[in-house]
Design a protein around this nucleic acid. Sequence first.
DNA 1: GCCGTTTTCGGCCCGACTGTTTTCAGTCG
Length: 581
Amino acid sequence: MTPVETSAEFDMKNDQIAAVFAQLSDLLEIQEANPFRVRAYRSAGRTISSTAESFAALVEEGADLTRFSGIGKDLAKQIVEVVTTGQHSQLAELKQQVPAGVVDMLRIQGVGPKKVAVFFNKLNLTSLDELKAAAQAGELAALNGFGKKTEQSILANIDRAAEAGKRISIADARAAAEAIVQDLLRLDTVTQTAVAGSCRRRRETCGDLDVLATSSDATAAMDRLAAHPLVDSVLQRGDTKQRVRLKSGVEMDLRVVADSSYGAAMQYFTGSKEHNVVVRQRAKDMGLKVNEYGVFRGDDQIAGATEEDVYAALDLPWIPPELRENRREFDLAATGVMPRLVEVGDIKGDLHMHTTASDGAASILQMAEAAKARGLKYIAITDHSKRVSMANGLDATRLRAHWDDIRAAREQIDGIQLLCGIECDILEDATMDLADDVLAEADWVVAVLHYGLQQPREQIMKRLMNAIQNPHVNIIGHPTGRLVGKRDGADINMTEMLQAAAENGVMMEINAHFKRLDLDDVNAAAARDLGIPIVISTDSHSVNGFDVLQYGVDQGRRASLTKDDVANTKTWAQFKKLLQR
DNA sequence: GCCGTTTTCGGCCCGACTGTTTTCAGTCG
């Protein structure tokens, strides 16, 4: 492909491009297009949004987009059209034919493209409000293939459609799922139980919860779940599967299988869907069949009790759940050995935390004692700089006095190193919040964006580049500034930022707080590929703040980071050497 | 629409649950 000559903007984000193809697949589905074509569009959207490189930049370079799996000649052309014109001609056409309100109907539980097509084509309904009115008037039950129950179900779920797709944080998901798992284990008839689904894959957020149990008595397990104090109501119940709504609004599936199927069921219910499609296709190619009950050759179950057996039957090493997204796990598996991913126990230092000097709740010594109690060997105290006045940020004078306090604290505690650090704001005008001579005195400088996150990409990049080129900056903290599910990050050219960091020896943080978790999995993997040391830090504001470390490590695992990729797994002696820039 | 030691056509993962049906389609994960 030759570079594209155009005057159009090349600043479209991957998520925006992906959204075009997601919309296309919804619309095509309502129009009853070939389901595999719909899937191709949906998969292309997923590929684009889970790629660190900017597709806009790739188009600008004239790169061959068909090197991405699932993107062929046709989709490559469509991506070029979207990037260069900001439009997709077929999407525009489809939007003329199908009003947006019709697409909204897809969000109603139990309503899919086929039903939506009937509402639109037979009854001319074009919005959720019109659909609701029709249901109340009994018009839906009169349709061929519909009945009173479907109509009632739509009425029951239509008001919830607006919040459908809402996801909860991994922290909330784990708390709820693990409470229920522990409760099920109290039943004598339940032998094994575990959390599966996106929660087990440790995604940042979960749309629903999946719990698996093995038991000779599925009825007892389902009754137990139905009676759990966290449960609001039972939505579905069959012989082996029950779906409930929790009081928090989140829905949970419980699946009960026999012990001989536990591994296969775990594999199946852990997903992701895309990972499982590849697994099952692979089985098919080998003359086998995989379902939630096991791996089968003909009618013979040849594996199923453990996940290891299931993967082994397919000539695959066991794949850690965090990697099961059909990204690179099958390439890694092809080498025969999966990398040993970083673990919480590997972490020896925490390099981002606050004290009462700014907006923390504990003293320097209290934080150090708490860190030491958790087995950490070194920490950096990184209170806010003055720009963050709301958090009582430090100016040069207060910071120097604070550093004196940190040095004094070193005398009062053994077995843990204390670094004099600072979380220094990168100001809107691209200068640092503290002067170079102050930063030069620090052991550890975390540079961050807090304000002006809405600035245009050019200015955001100027700020990040200045910080990265500042010889006193060690690391960029929570690099995008996004808040999971609440706020998009700044408009960053990730490739450019990471390249600059690699060239200047600046590290990148995975902020372990479950509301941040950036760099995210995709970008952290890209950083690692460039040889950038990653630091997983908690940003603790209290002695309990260290609890979030697990979430950061999980994000690192999703990025397939090993211990070697994470700088704060080093011993203090090794880490000290990394500090020389 | 993608893909290919079954490569340019003919496939494309698999099963539970529900509701509307008398044998299956739609939805969901």
